[in-house]
């Protein structure tokens, strides 16, 4: 709760007296069950389709369950197995690098893009729609296009070599780190449009008067961006940062697409979710170990979120 909330009071007027007065009156006006009625449907869905399966995951983590049968209690064996899993070490490092690179880029770039398409210019509907298409492009076509770009004999290597930047091709799709960064660029490419529209909806709330006042004061574009736009969308930005963190730690499809599901030589370019998928899919899937990995990922995700919440509270 504190994570995203506390900055909102910034907008509240400083006249504390009237505010407490109305607040206490509103408590009398607000019937006690009204909020419960409003959240009731959401809570039903939360319990049936989210919490119930989550409990399932937690229980499975202590069993050797398979999709069909099995499922004796095995204590903490699945968690002990993690300690010996050197693929998991690679996956954790990858997921964390992924998050650290994606977080700043995807927080800022979609906001800039939103500012670019915010202004009503002729044809802007077309651009907005076009920028959103990567979000919904089919995985098969994305794989084709990106391989065509990044392949040893692909467009980027061909251009770089013909311009004399490179003597030989860069192994974008086979070297561990290059592969990771190729996947990150794919994530950012897809994320641009996705986060752009969330920012757009928040930009409407940024007061134009403030912008104009700052312009009158002689603030340049950069200053106005930092002192008006960013504080104005701060709430949304924090929410977006949470979403980026969660989805970066859970990256799957980009790495899967670029390595054709192999996870690279030695499986060193797998993410944690790729490991979960590998173990859980199919008839012989090891649901127990996959569930234990899910819980590990949950714990790891909580960490950076707490950090973010702390930073937010301090500033």
């Amino acid at each position: 709760m504190v994570l995203l909330a506390n900055r909102d009071r910034r907008r509240a007027p400083h006249g504390g007296g009237t505010r407490t007065g109305t607040a206490s009156r509103s408590i009398r006006q607000q019937r006690w069950f009204a909020p419960l009625l409003l959240v009731a449907p959401a809570v039903v869905w939360l319990v049936v389709f989210n919490i119930w399966p989550s409990i399932n995951t937690v229980v499975l983590a202590f069993t050797n369950a398979k999709p069909l049968g099995g499922g004796s209690f095995v204590g903490t064996a699945n968690f002990e197995r993690m300690l010996d899993d050197d693929q998991l070490v690679y996956a954790l490092i990858n997921s964390i690098v992924y998050m650290l690179v994606c977080l700043p880029l995807l927080t800022v770039l979609p906001l800039l893009l939103a500012l670019l398409v915010e202004k009503r210019l002729p044809g802007i509907t077309f651009f907005r729609t076009a920028f959103y298409t990567p979000v919904i492009a089919s995985a098969v076509v994305v794989a084709l296009i990106w391989n065509w770009l990044l392949d040893d004999r692909g467009a980027i290597n061909a251009i770089a070599q013909s311009l004399g930047f490179l003597s030989g091709p860069l192994p974008f799709l086979t070297d561990r780190w290059l592969l990771l960064f190729s996947a990150i660029s794919l994530t950012i490419w897809k994320g641009l449009g996705y986060y752009m529209i969330i920012y757009l909806s928040a930009l409407g709330n940024v007061s134009r008067e403030l912008h104009e006042a700052a312009a009158v004061d002689g603030a340049g574009v950069v200053r106005r961006f930092l002192s008006v736009t960013v504080p104005g969308v701060r709430n949304t930005m924090l929410l977006i940062m949470v979403l980026i963190m969660v989805s970066a730690l859970r990256v799957f499809s980009e790495l899967f697409i670029l390595t054709n599901g192999t996870g690279g030589p030695g499986g060193r370019v797998m993410s944690v979710v790729m490991l979960i998928q590998m173990y859980s899919r199919g008839f012989t899937g090891n649901l127990g170990y996959a569930s234990a990995l899910s819980i590990l990922l949950f714990v790891i995700t909580v960490g950076p979120m707490v950090v973010l919440a702390r930073m937010n509270r301090r500033s």
């Binding site: 709760m1 994570l3 959240v39 959401a42 809570v43 939360l46 989210n50 919490i51 399966p53 989550s54 399932n56 995951t57 499975l60 949470v242 969660v246 859970r250 979710v273 979960i276 998928q277 859980s280 649901l287 996959a290 569930s291 899910s294 819980i295 990922l297 949950f298 995700t301 909580v302 979120m305």
Partner: peptide, 16 residues
């Protein structure tokens, strides 16, 4: 409730 919503958002649902 809010905390639970955040929590379910970050628990991977692949095995369910």
């Amino acid at each position: 409730i809010f905390a639970l919503i955040i929590a379910t958002l970050i628990l991977p649902g692949e095995v369910t």
